[in-house]
């Protein structure tokens, strides 16, 4: 690396540290704590709603096998949809909702788009997780006189939990990442720093936003990965069984 390049990188590092450690960037409505909080709310609410909606649907599909094609196609379509495109498509549809109110016009489309993005991985993984449960175990459970709901809650669900959590983890990371794009529609969150940094040619703000978003996404990934590992039955874990890694499952698209 040439001396000029190294100096440029050092300059960038110092403008990043200067911006990050400036006390005025840690208070007020545009301060880092508020932006992080906004980002977590904008991602957390649609994720929770998506979990509440997708779990019953996915469990139903997995248990009965009805609508399996829907579950598989949802996953494939979800990959082809550009997240920015979804945001844009929903915006004109929700404008009448926000007209004349104090609600920021970018908020409903962002929340709806994030909700829609979070659904497919959870539904698909619920379906796959339950389908992958050993059929003999389910026959045995029925033979023991379990009712269908008991088969689902006592046999299928515990065994499928790691795979289902993998789906939620995929959704969570994608939602946290895509929430950054909400800034394009003028709402808060950490994407604000990136877009403002670009338009104001403020490298410190730009890098701070990017680093914080990246950290948040990585922490989400690691947090859910830990949860997922913890959900694997200790007996399976000790045998090195990697059942929680769905075979052949493509990694989630980056957002």
């Amino acid at each position: 690396m040439g001396a000029g390049k190294r100096r440029r990188l050092m300059d960038l590092l110092s403008s990043f540290l200067a911006w990050l450690t400036d006390a005025s960037h840690w208070t007020g409505d545009t301060g880092i704590p508020v932006r992080v909080g906004e980002h977590l709310l904008i991602s957390g609410i649609p994720l929770l709603v998506a979990i509440v909606v997708a779990l019953p649907v996915g469990l139903f599909i997995g248990h009965t096998g009805k609508g399996a094609l829907l579950a598989v196609s949802l996953g494939n379509i979800g990959r082809a949809l550009p997240s920015l495109g979804i945001l844009g498509i929903i915006l004109p549809l929700t404008l009448p909702l926000t007209a004349g109110t104090d609600i920021p016009l970018g908020l409903p489309p962002s929340l709806i788009a994030l909700f829609a993005l979070a659904l497919p991985p959870i539904i698909t993984n619920c379906h796959v997780g339950i389908r992958e449960v050993d059929r003999d175990l389910i026959e045995a459970a029925r033979g023991m006189g379990m009712r269908e709901t008991q088969v689902l809650t006592r046999v299928e669900l515990p065994l499928a939990t790691p795979v289902i959590l993998a789906g939620i983890r995929t959704s969570a990371v994608q939602v946290v990442a895509t929430a950054t794009l909400g800034a394009v529609l003028g709402i808060g969150g950490l994407g604000r720093y990136i877009l403002d940094g670009i338009s104001q040619h403020d490298d410190g703000q730009l890098i701070t936003g990017a680093v914080l978003v990246a950290l948040l996404a990585i922490l989400t990934e690691l947090g859910f990965a830990a949860l997922q590992r913890a959900s694997v039955s200790p007996g399976l874990r000790s045998t090195g069984d990697r059942a929680y890694e769905v075979a052949g499952q493509a990694p989630r698209p980056p957002a």
Partner: peptide, 15 residues
Amino acid sequence: YTIPSLALFALLIPI
């Protein structure tokens, strides 16, 4: 792969 695309683009802009 985990880094959101806008963040990765942003990190490259100054360089």
